[in-house]
Simulated assay, not measured.
Amino acid sequence: MARIVKFVKRTKAKGRFYYYFDTGQTGDDGKRVWKRLPDPADRSFAATYAAHLGHRARRENVVQQLTLAKLIALYQASDKFTKMAASTRRLYELYQADLVDKLGTAPAQLVERKDIVLLLDKMADRPGAANMVKRAGSAAYAWGRKRGHVTNDPFFEIEEMDTGEHQPWPDAALQLALASDDDLVRLSVHLLYYTAQRIGDVASMKWRDIQGDAICITQRKTGKPLDIPIHQDLAKELARHSRSLSTIIPGAPTEAKNNRIRLAIQSVCASIGVKVVPHGLRKNAVNALLEAGCSSAETAAISGQSLQMVEYYAKGRSQAKLGRAAMLKWEGT
């Protein structure tokens, strides 16, 4: 027995020794699968051990040929994935595609923690996207381990990046962007601000979504349908552009389009030394609605948020503007 130790463990129970072979597999419960071996004194031990060793070697060879792209394809075809909320599936598909683009041809079993760390570090300028790549990739590997497709976990104990909290824009940056000479910036900021929606939803808005005096959309993240009345200033901006059968902001709604909008907006605001993110305009919109005297429920009807989220977003609202709005209502009674 001293010469044959690879993948074998010995245990003792009731005064007897028992031998087990590590198959390299994990069961549905995530635990390592061991196969009982005969006693080394038994003449069948060598043949049984050789058979298990050969099976493990063949399986490891097959596993190593399963690329990361194929693992993710299997995951996305699984019941685990298809039973997720539609919004979660779309997010995972988006960020798993990013993972496949960078490491898709690598054998899934051979991807190491350092490979993922390097990939995420290269996304340090997009911490939110990096965190989503980690979550989406980790989910695929967790599923793969339970199914026995892989045994490794390259996402083990990788901490998420600090994204900070998106702040509302300073008034100077908002007014600059609303009046920009750049058509993409001006149109994008009008839609982001006056509809209080996320950049992905704004990029997906089509001209046919405008029905009467409202823009009718279904939020991609929540699946919530909204009829958003068109603010008079947004109506003026929309009138400056030719209608088509496509999206209001030209270009197919993709992450690349979102980045193009984001970079154009940030470039304009950087000209006055202000760093912004498009999502901050949701806070500007929520604050503007509340400062105009709208209730939390009325504000939520525009933004599509919960009442609790409206209140959370509204922490930076102007006390002075709220006070004036309240006094006008009081005087009106």
Score class of each variant (00 low, 15 high):
residue 8 V to K: 00
residue 12 K to F: 14
residue 26 T to R: 14
residue 28 D to K: 10
residue 34 W to M: 09
residue 34 W to E: 01
residue 35 K to W: 05
residue 37 L to M: 09
residue 40 P to T: 03
residue 41 A to L: 08
residue 46 A to D: 13
residue 48 T to A: 14
residue 57 A to R: 06
residue 60 E to Y: 05
residue 67 T to P: 01
residue 67 T to K: 01
residue 75 Y to W: 08
residue 75 Y to F: 15
residue 79 D to Q: 06
residue 84 M to C: 06
residue 84 M to R: 02
residue 85 A to G: 07
residue 85 A to Y: 12
residue 85 A to H: 12
residue 86 A to P: 06
residue 88 T to G: 07
residue 95 Y to N: 10
residue 97 A to G: 14
residue 98 D to W: 12
residue 102 K to T: 13
residue 102 K to F: 14
residue 110 L to A: 11
residue 111 V to M: 04
residue 113 R to M: 08
residue 115 D to V: 07
residue 120 L to H: 05
residue 120 L to R: 02
residue 122 K to S: 15
residue 123 M to L: 14
residue 130 A to V: 06
residue 130 A to T: 04
residue 133 V to E: 02
residue 133 V to K: 06
residue 134 K to C: 09
residue 136 A to R: 00
residue 137 G to E: 00
residue 139 A to L: 08
residue 143 W to Q: 00
residue 148 G to F: 11
residue 148 G to S: 07
residue 148 G to D: 03
residue 155 F to A: 03
residue 157 E to C: 09
residue 157 E to P: 02
residue 161 M to L: 14
residue 164 G to I: 09
residue 167 Q to V: 11
residue 174 L to R: 13
residue 174 L to I: 13
residue 176 L to E: 03
residue 179 A to W: 05
residue 181 D to I: 01
residue 181 D to L: 04
residue 183 D to Q: 05
residue 188 S to F: 10
residue 192 L to Q: 03
residue 193 Y to W: 06
residue 194 Y to P: 01
residue 194 Y to D: 00
residue 195 T to F: 12
residue 195 T to G: 03
residue 196 A to W: 01
residue 197 Q to M: 08
residue 199 I to N: 04
residue 200 G to V: 09
residue 200 G to K: 02
residue 201 D to K: 02
residue 201 D to V: 04
residue 204 S to R: 10
residue 204 S to K: 09
residue 205 M to Q: 01
residue 209 D to P: 01
residue 209 D to N: 15
residue 209 D to V: 04
residue 214 A to Y: 07
residue 216 C to I: 09
residue 217 I to D: 00
residue 217 I to C: 03
residue 223 G to P: 04
residue 227 D to R: 13
residue 228 I to V: 14
residue 232 Q to I: 09
residue 232 Q to S: 15
residue 238 L to G: 13
residue 247 T to M: 05
residue 253 P to R: 04
residue 253 P to Y: 11
residue 255 E to K: 14
residue 258 N to L: 05
residue 260 R to I: 12
residue 260 R to K: 12
residue 263 L to V: 15
residue 263 L to Q: 09
residue 270 A to C: 10
residue 270 A to D: 15
residue 270 A to T: 08
residue 271 S to M: 04
residue 273 G to K: 06
residue 277 V to T: 15
residue 279 H to E: 02
residue 280 G to I: 03
residue 282 R to Y: 12
residue 283 K to A: 14
residue 286 V to H: 02
residue 288 A to S: 14
residue 295 S to V: 05
residue 295 S to H: 01
residue 295 S to I: 06
residue 298 E to S: 10
residue 298 E to V: 06
residue 302 I to Q: 03
residue 303 S to C: 02
residue 303 S to H: 02
residue 305 Q to G: 01
residue 305 Q to R: 04
residue 308 Q to P: 01
residue 311 E to D: 15
residue 313 Y to E: 00
residue 316 G to M: 10
residue 319 Q to V: 13
residue 321 K to Q: 05
residue 322 L to S: 13
residue 325 A to Y: 11
residue 332 G to Y: 12
residue 333 T to L: 11
residue 333 T to R: 08
residue 333 T to K: 08
residue 333 T to S: 07
